[in-house]
């Protein structure tokens, strides 16, 4: 589904990603593990076209996307949920969803606000609330729901559990599992092992911009703990 070959990136003169290679398939959760500054968020932004192209080849559903602007990539069915959530705080829940809306897509679930309110019942209870008046956990749900409005075939999730109370983290994990069951491809950036353990089928360990190890979560996990 998502294929990354030789991906590099740099801020100014400082190179932050070196030749990343990985593949994520439909219906699976691939975790990118690593501490802050290891390059996880940069990799996601780079895939999403939010950072200027450097080198490497990114294919999504077979098509090259590495030279496309973000909105084109999103319209191909790749969704992105950033680390800071980036809810539109002046817009209501419904309006936030409207921004993410795209036409139905072949080979992907067709999401409507009502279907999303079934997946995230507490969002359904606050449809007119402004994004800025929601708690961190609610914003996280909205960020995921907003991306689903684009009927994506794959989503990039950047640390969805960061800063949330353990009890809310469980709800987020539940929702991600549900999406996976529906056949979505999920690329999950995570530094929290405990959370990744609940969800990931496979993992890559990122260290200083390089993939240090990849494979099953158990194999990668032991290396990560030693960092």
């Amino acid at each position: 589904m998502l294929e990354v070959r030789g991906l590099s990136a740099a801020y100014g003169k400082a190179q932050v990603l070196f030749e990343l290679d990985f593949v994520a398939h439909a219906g699976e959760v691939l975790a990118l593990l690593g501490r802050n500054g290891a390059g996880k968020s940069t990799a996601l932004k780079r895939i999403m076209g939010l950072l200027p192209p450097r080198t490497g080849e990114i294919r999504f559903g077979g098509a090259r996307i590495d030279a496309l602007p973000p909105f084109r990539i999103a319209r191909l069915g790749l969704g992105y949920v950033p680390e800071e959530r980036r809810i539109f705080t002046d817009l209501s829940v419904r309006e936030n969803l409207e921004v993410g809306r795209q036409p139905p897509r072949d080979g992907a679930a067709h999401w409507t606000p009502d279907r999303l309110f079934e997946l995230f019942p507490n969002l359904g209870r606050m449809q007119d609330r402004l994004g800025g008046r929601m708690s961190g956990g609610e914003q996280q749900m909205l960020a995921v729901a907003r991306t689903l409005m684009g009927n994506p075939r794959a989503i990039l999730l950047d640390e969805p559990a960061e800063g949330l109370a353990p009890i809310v983290v469980e709800q987020v994990a539940l929702a991600i599992r549900e999406l996976k069951a529906q056949g979505l491809c999920v690329l999950l950036c995570e530094q929290n092992l405990h959370f990744a353990r609940q969800l990931a089928d496979r993992a890559c360990l990122l260290e200083q911009g390089r993939i240090r190890a990849s494979g099953t979560l158990e194999a990668v996990e032991s290396l990560y703990a030693m960092v």
Partner: peptide, 11 residues
């Protein structure tokens, strides 16, 4: 304030 936010477990 959240001194370890954004760091690896070992760190």
């Amino acid at each position: 304030d959240e001194p370890t936010a954004g760091m690896a477990p070992g760190e």
